[in-house]
Design a protein around this nucleic acid. Structure first.
Lengths: 355, 355
DNA sequence: CTGAAAGCGCTAACAT
DNA sequence: ATGTTAGCGCTTTCAG
């Protein structure tokens, strides 16, 4: 049986399509009497609005795209999980895309090629946008970028203060008495500006403590995953003068590094202390648990959605703004060991949520 | 500047809209000459088809929904990651939804209420569909269900042989000489049929080995996450006669259980051996690494997409079929310890992919 | 092989 | 407050 259309409802209710539309969308005021009639008809024919037709008529898709490098990276899936509910509250469906580490794919998405009209705006967690990529962005695409502003100020950015968070993480290690603190995750090339912010914080902590930076302890990695972390750590362990602590640019890197340290027969944190970044759930269960920088993911998610919705609504794109969500340092076993610490020790009865 | 429409292109090229449409979609054959003309016009006005209009005219959305209980559960995010590429190859966008553990939400999605027309079909990883929920399903919704068939045979199901895989996992533990093998993750109620298949395999392994099943060692959990795993494990550890091995119904459960065992001061696998299910990447990096049942996720993903696409294409829904993807048991440290084993020991130079 | 034109189902002027 | 109707931009039947 064909789906009932607005006209069918109108006919059954003995009113015009316009009135039915009004009732369905709650636009203009409608007499209580007609409303009742219409609603009865609505039920009678089991009317379900055709979203496709509505979208075409309204000239918008009612969808927003969320683009992340990898869907199976816990930080991103946790973020996505947090983005969907507020998006839905604003009436948007979420279209998820992964760039799969492919910059070309990323550029294609932001230039909107064939899939224009399919989403009204985009929340992008850039893999790496170099200055010159920005020009490829469809200027009419409402866009919110996840992560700190690195290049220009045209778009909205939502993230945490990476430099400060990284400084705090490094300072935490130095405060524990460690003197050879390594860093894993630098990306010293144009698309790695986000990673470079972390490195800047790392340097700042050293400067604050009056400590020199051993440049050879800053290990670059192409991504922020487990394999990169363990590979870099192995490299560090092979040296004659291995570090006694490592600031890892993601929890995944820290987890990979942890595995390498343990495989090497050393202990964490006794021999080498490790701190990560992101506060993914996995780090609350690993052995040892991973100290980390915990960004307020819920705040990032809701803020990003709100900014995007606003951008979509306003005809003229407002000035790009910069939102800094909160973050905090959580000391767990990988730096302070198994003390009975307020934040971390042992396995909590209830696992604290990141948000 | 307004986006160029098909008509604009037609005018510039001096042909009709029909012809432009033909060129764009590669439908009917078009003279080389006109084709050239049209293509030049296409570029000249920078034409991008309006997907919304196309969808309305075609009467389909070009989108499929993939519904999972939780987006941030590694098994699901890894599966989603694998589903998107084949879906895109078939010309579909993927709309991701999470039910958040809410059966009501799940029912709403399968009955397609307000969001009908938004997706042409659905791949559903059911939270728990009881017999009576099936009637709520929109009969016209092309649907592929992830996981083994538990109830009726109307829909396509794609999964692995849960009973056999669970039997093998349990047999692996028994083969290691363990005699008190517990199971964490049973769900002895109508919506837990999937979990019950695992329990059936667990029982079968015992029967095969001529071992009695100690019913008190089968611990139910509401979900398959880390917290459930550690909670259940603590319960087991508090007993006078704790188990010497545990078959966990997911890797996450195993990871949670692992944490509890270590917190209790016991060793894995020396004191208690642990095996999980799903083969998520995390289990290849944990300490110790987690033995597991590895489903062929890539096969599950591509098969599910293919079946769904076929269902969408055929007017009359074919008989529901049952696809069983491959799986294999991977023995890692949590059962066999740190032997130099072909599959598992140490940290591989390259982390094997699940697919 | 190409043109003309009728929808797809809804929205939103415009009119009453 | 409600009716009339012209689009939204594309697909596709029907002619030619």
């Amino acid at each position: 049986m064909r789906d009932a259309t607005l006209r069918d409802v109108a006919r059954v209710a003995g009113v015009s399509a316009r009135t039915v539309s009004n009732v369905v969308n709650g636009y203009a005021r409608v007499t209580e009497h007609t409303r009742q009639k219409v609603e009865r008809a609505l039920l009678e024919v089991n009317y379900r609005p055709n979203v496709l037709a509505r979208n075409l008529a309204r000239g918008r898709s009612g969808q927003i795209a969320v683009v992340v490098p990898y869907l199976d990276t816990p930080y991103f899936s946790e973020l996505l999980q947090a983005i969907i509910p507020p998006a839905r509250e604003h009436g948007y469906n979420v279209l998820i895309d992964q760039t799969d580490g492919d910059p070309a794919h990323e550029r294609e998405l932001i230039s909107r090629g064939a899939r224009a009209f399919l989403f009204d705006g985009m929340i992008l967690s850039p893999l790496g946008l170099a200055q010159e990529d920005l020009v490829e962005i469809d200027p009419d695409l409402p866009l919110v970028i996840l992560g700190e502003r690195v290049s220009n100020g045209v778009f909205d950015h939502v993230g945490i203060d990476d430099v400060e968070a990284s400084r705090a993480a490094t300072a935490h290690l130095i405060g524990l008495g460690r003197r050879r603190v390594a860093a894993i995750g630098d990306q010293p090339y144009p698309t790695g500006e986000a990673a470079q912010l972390r490195t800047r914080g790392y340097r700042r902590a050293h400067a604050d403590a009056g400590l020199p930076v051993d440049e050879s302890l800053i290990i670059p990695t192409p991504r922020f995953n487990r394999a990169d972390g363990s590979g870099a750590m192995r490299e560090l362990l092979a040296r004659e003068d291995p570090p006694d602590a490592v600031f890892c640019y993601s929890d995944l890197v820290a987890l990979g590094a942890l595995r390498a340290v343990l495989d090497h027969g050393l202990r964490v944190p006794e021999d080498i202390a490790l701190i990560g970044y992101d506060d993914i759930e996995e780090g609350r269960y690993s052995n040892p648990t991973i100290s980390t920088i915990s960004p307020d993911k819920a705040a990032i998610a809701t803020t990003a959605v709100e900014r995007l919705v606003r951008r979509i609504a306003s005809a003229e794109p407002p000035q790009g703004i910069e939102v800094r969500a909160d973050h905090r340092l959580i000391a767990r076993e990988s730096t302070v060991g198994r003390t009975v610490d307020e934040n971390s020790a042992g396995l909590p009865e209830k696992v604290p949520d990141a948000d």
